[in-house]
Computed example of a mutant assay.
Amino acid sequence: MAEDLLIIKTESKEEQYQSLIPQIQALISGEDDLIANLANISAALKEQFGWLWVGFYLVKDEELVLGPFQGPVACTRIKSGKGVCGRSWQEAKTFIVEDVDKFPGHIACSSASRSEIVLPILIDGVVLGVLDADSAELAQFDEVDEKYLSQVISLISA
């Protein structure tokens, strides 16, 4: 596939995901390198939705270590249970945070971040990393994002 995306902005968020996910699938199809795929997924999500930050943290030596991302510079290492990413890793569950200033222990990698969604990447019940997206707007993320970003995670896990 050509490395171009058809970005749609006029439809609903759900329709945007429905257009983007098959393109992501085609983009990573046939590529076995995880880092290359995570990089392209980050770029595709950033290009479609224009979030402040989107990327991945991968579990290495008992920490989450920064992986491919799009956006401003980020925290390099996160301990289990720390911040939204660390909690998602520790609890193996998705967190949707409408206002990061109200999340106990939030790690402010960027002062511009106002809301966040973090989904664990689970393979055989083990968290191998997290997908993290931050927005400069409050309450940017919801169940629609969780539903479709979970589908993105399933593409990675396949």
Rank of each mutant, 00 (worst) to 15 (best):
S12D: 06
K13N: 05
E14R: 12
Q16N: 10
Q16H: 10
S19K: 14
S19D: 09
L20T: 11
L20N: 02
L20D: 08
I21A: 09
I24P: 01
A26N: 15
L27N: 04
L27K: 04
I28A: 00
I28Y: 01
I28P: 00
S29H: 02
G30C: 06
E31G: 01
E31R: 13
E31I: 14
D33A: 06
I35H: 05
A36P: 02
N40S: 09
I41Y: 08
A44D: 02
K46E: 12
F49N: 01
F49Q: 09
G50V: 04
G50W: 08
W51Y: 15
L52K: 07
W53E: 07
V54I: 15
G55N: 04
F56T: 13
Y57L: 11
Y57A: 13
L58W: 05
K60W: 01
K60D: 09
K60N: 07
K60I: 10
E62I: 03
E62K: 14
E63V: 13
E63A: 12
L64E: 10
L64Y: 11
V65N: 03
V65D: 06
L66V: 15
G67E: 03
G67F: 04
F69M: 14
F69N: 05
G71L: 15
G71A: 15
P72V: 12
P72N: 11
C75F: 04
C75Q: 13
I78W: 07
K79G: 05
K79A: 14
K82M: 11
V84K: 03
G86A: 11
W89V: 01
Q90V: 01
Q90G: 07
T94E: 05
F95M: 08
I96R: 03
V97Q: 04
V97L: 07
D99K: 13
D99Q: 07
D99F: 11
K102N: 14
K102H: 08
H106L: 07
I107C: 06
I107S: 07
I107A: 02
I107P: 07
A108P: 06
C109S: 02
C109M: 11
C109A: 12
S111M: 14
A112V: 02
S113D: 02
S113I: 11
S113T: 14
S113P: 10
R114A: 05
R114E: 06
R114Q: 05
S115G: 09
S115T: 13
E116M: 08
I117W: 02
P120D: 12
P120F: 12
P120W: 00
I123M: 13
I123W: 10
I123A: 13
D124Q: 14
G125W: 10
V127I: 02
L128E: 08
L128C: 06
G129H: 00
